[in-house]
Amino acid sequence: MFTNRYIFIYSSVMVIIVAAVLSSASSLLKPFQEKNIRTEKMMDILKSVQVSGEKSEAEKLYDQYVIREEAINSKGELISVYEGGKLVQGDIRPFEINLKEEQHKLDELKAGKSDVEPAFPLYVCEKDGNKYYVIPMLGKGLWGPIWGNIALEADFNTIFGVTFDHKGETPGLGAEIAYKPFQDQFIGKKLFDDNGNFVSIAVVKGGVKTRPPDKQIHGVDAISGGTITSNGVDAMIKDCLENYIEYIKNHNNS
């Protein structure tokens, strides 16, 4: 009673209708979703400098605390500055930079496959008269991407605060990176040793206490049972901050 012809036409019509409904819903809801993502990004940056507030106020708080956005290239040169609500230098607002694309550009550049310079964002925040520099990070966890922000004090060495988040790390294990106990360990740790060499922050399996006393300032405890996520955080901090070393050195010398 149902011919093949009927079935083919039926399925085609059904699929077209469904596609039309879904694509119109998607384009209708897109502005709302993008706003959510934007708000979250702002709140994450603010959280790393220990500013918390209602999500509805994200935009306002962001404008209040983040006084300047910068972007640097792989040589640590300033290529873009956004300040006081307008672009002062360069052609892209650092906030709009997609870190994943820039990391890809860097890989291509390092491999010699292209000569397009990546742009890495840096947020300059001011809170209670002190300046803080927030560097966004993106890396790999066990199951998917992990990301976060690291806020440095004006010496570009001492960590003021960090945030981490993840797409789908194991709850109770790797997912603990998104919570306060893990993140609070980073506060006060230092990125550079006494000679000014970059040593990053190690996420130490077995606990940072196993390290020599002079190394403990450069490490935090890994998460038991979350080794791969912990290693991911370790690698993410190192890889992402490395791009800023030249900039930091220039900054400290000037």
Partner: peptide
């Protein structure tokens, strides 16, 4: 997919 999109827009 509709539910997922709506949640992403209004209950992020």
């Amino acid at each position: 997919i509709l539910v997922d999109q709506i949640l992403k827009a209004f209950a992020y």
